[in-house]
Design a binder for these strands. Sequence first.
DNA 1: CTGAAAGCGCTTACAG
DNA 2: CTGAAAGCGCTTACAG
Lengths: 339, 339
Amino acid sequence: MAVTLKDIAEEAGVSVMTVSNVVNGKTARVSQATIERVRDIVVARGYVANASARSLAASRSHTIGVLVPVAEGDMLTMSPHHVAVIGGIERQLRQAGYHVLLRGITEPAEVGEAVQEWGLDGAVLLGFLDAEIDALPAHGVPLLAVDSYSLNPRATGVRSDDFGGGLIAAQHLLEHGHRGLLFAGPAFGASGVVRRRHDGFVAAVAEVPDATAETVAVNTTYEDGLELGRALRSRFPDVTGVFATADVLAVGIMAGLRDGGASVPEDVSVVGFDNLDLGLYVRPRLTTVAQDLGEKVAVAARMLLGEIDGEDAPDEVELPVRLEVRESVAAAPTPPPRG
Amino acid sequence: MAVTLKDIAEEAGVSVMTVSNVVNGKTARVSQATIERVRDIVVARGYVANASARSLAASRSHTIGVLVPVAEGDMLTMSPHHVAVIGGIERQLRQAGYHVLLRGITEPAEVGEAVQEWGLDGAVLLGFLDAEIDALPAHGVPLLAVDSYSLNPRATGVRSDDFGGGLIAAQHLLEHGHRGLLFAGPAFGASGVVRRRHDGFVAAVAEVPDATAETVAVNTTYEDGLELGRALRSRFPDVTGVFATADVLAVGIMAGLRDGGASVPEDVSVVGFDNLDLGLYVRPRLTTVAQDLGEKVAVAARMLLGEIDGEDAPDEVELPVRLEVRESVAAAPTPPPRG
DNA sequence: CTGAAAGCGCTTACAG
DNA sequence: CTGAAAGCGCTTACAG
């Protein structure tokens, strides 16, 4: 059996609650002598507070759920981006004395169940659709949605400036003389991350006479990129600049273009989004829109912890984005004489 | 306030413990009528059992710790391999009604603290050094170390056949006529994953007259690979076949070789280890030693759950490995006439 | 500065 | 088939 508060109390000759006070640093009203005696015994006996008992009594679990959608029976697949977010959150929370419960969510109702079951003090929602977050009922604890444009006031959000990301990607291409631009990303609706990137992309193109923006819906996988890249010049003969909403997709497109006989960036330039390490491993190195993940995570953790400590729910936070210029964009090729 | 067992009991007009029995499926000694009445109320009220209370009373948390070493103040960095393992474990445990506590471990003693604090039913150790696992004291719960060669009987292990991996990598190179072979991986001691791979590698080389194996210690990062690749032909003029103990490293070496004016695989062939997606994204596609991660995870989860349910600790399990042949190995170049 | 008591929401023998 | 009681290890007012 593990050593309990009671064991320490008996050995120290004080009450259980005095030990509790010492252990929890509520040292204001305890004599120095008692504090030291208790502390010594705690260390000597290797006392560790039982989290379940503590949660139950205090109705505060010091536990945050990191919730990730997952298909029933499927395994939690985390993108490099999710992994970085989880890693960063875990660190911040650990340092603040919190713990992380990692859980795959099969259907939205499980969010509430997880909160109730564990008495979570808060939860981070990673990779949920805006519509799912919109539909979330109140659960009585702070919810923080990463990369969501949901308007649900019960979940605060942290995200990057997706509009700006699309904008600078297009501007970079336009500055290099490209006029036939292509936006490649997953199908999108009236809102969401991809929609914002697209809006920014289109806004930049609209500023430049003669420039045109086409859009193609494609899953963000390497394979889909490969396929698109191979067919790109026949499907979009006027396109010389491509913006892909994810680095894996961009890398696939580059490989496909080369398979199809085009050079990157001489014939077609490509810009990605995410700034994964992967972009450094391929040739040409990928020019991509980078977000400051570390800062995003830090802000997210701070917001969540703040709300738990009773601060007002902050407004949505949108973090800046920048272009990581590498080698996959060059000047637009001189167009062959028409006609 | 969330609804409790007591609420349900009152509404159903039965005792708390009858509700508890129904909720927990200990339905043997409860009348069908009662079962149904209680169940309906449970559903209607949206009852969810409080995990803390349950753990405390039953001294069974249904929670497994996934413990990953991390430098103090640092963030949890998880390799693609770790991510896949965590994802797989989470799925298996979720389906078995267990939960996953993800926690960075700054020093070995924290393993025991985590177990005590949470009343963990077991823990998965991911990425620990053999020496750290060797030193782990008994914690009273099953511990499962992934990819460890520790002999500590308190932690059972699951790993891949690293010796075999090194062996088939070398054999593949030898079969293609390579005689000057290089093993590139992190520095290793008398045991551990890298040591085994090296032993297998050397064993294969020893079978072939004239074949020689050199070894170079290098961190398994892209950048270190790049550096090694660039200098490879001057540092190891006789080497035409390289085995890198990680795919990122192999990819870096390939890029470095090209930077240094060598073609892959025409001048130098390269074999990796891990079978990451990355190997498919580069050209030439990386030939690599592949482990069956899904199977490894499934076995790991099954072993841990079995032990928790009182089965004897199984012996260490070693999973087979195979070569994923792609494009980074070719026939050894004809050696230039020696002067 | 210190403690006795109640209670958090469950489960576990035990008794009927 | 059903329940009353004790207890898991803590914390929270409250009283002194």
